[in-house]
Simulated assay, not measured.
Amino acid sequence: MFLMMGLMYFVVDLAAILLLSACWQRTRIRGFAIVAASYGAGIVARWTAPLAYRWADSGDGGMGSLAGVVVQTAFFLVAVVAVVGFWDIYRVLKQRPAA
């Protein structure tokens, strides 16, 4: 079940990356590429987070909370990258005249 959910998240994230890349190619607004990169980083973070927890649990036992902080910080940074991309999109669209 978890593998299937992971695969479905991967497919949805990949579709978002493809759509954002197509928007970037059409408009050349750099924010679309930045948001697509955040989706790619989210894929990597989602698939590597369990490995970080397993690595932390295999040690002394004191690393578990540190792994949680590291993983949550990684997810926060991915969200910050997405916000930067959306800010760039907003900034560019605000400067363009309405059609």
Rank of each mutant, 00 (worst) to 15 (best):
R91P: 00
A45L: 13
I17R: 02
F86L: 11
W87N: 08
F32L: 03
M5P: 00
A52M: 14
A99S: 09
T48L: 14
L66C: 06
L66G: 08
S65V: 09
Y39N: 12
P50C: 02
W87R: 12
A67Q: 09
Y9M: 08
V78G: 01
L7V: 10
Y9V: 06
G42Y: 03
F75M: 11
G6Q: 10
V69G: 09
V84F: 11
Q95A: 15
M4S: 10
S58M: 02
T27D: 14
V80S: 05
S21G: 15
G6W: 05
T48V: 11
M1K: 06
A82E: 08
V44N: 01
G42D: 03
Y53G: 02
A79C: 07
L19E: 09
R46Q: 14
P97Y: 02
S38E: 11
Q25M: 11
V71I: 15
Y39C: 12
F2W: 15
A22M: 06
L20M: 15
L3C: 00
L77T: 06
A67V: 03
D57S: 13
Y39A: 14
A98W: 09
I34Q: 13
V12M: 06
V11C: 10
R96W: 09
G59W: 05
Y9L: 11
D60W: 06
L14R: 00
Y90P: 01
A98H: 13
V12H: 00
G62I: 10
G6P: 00
M5K: 09
I43M: 14
A56M: 03
Q25V: 02
A67I: 06
W87P: 01
S58G: 01
S21C: 05
D13R: 07
G68F: 12
R46G: 15
V71Q: 05
A49P: 03
L7H: 03
S58A: 14
I89Y: 03
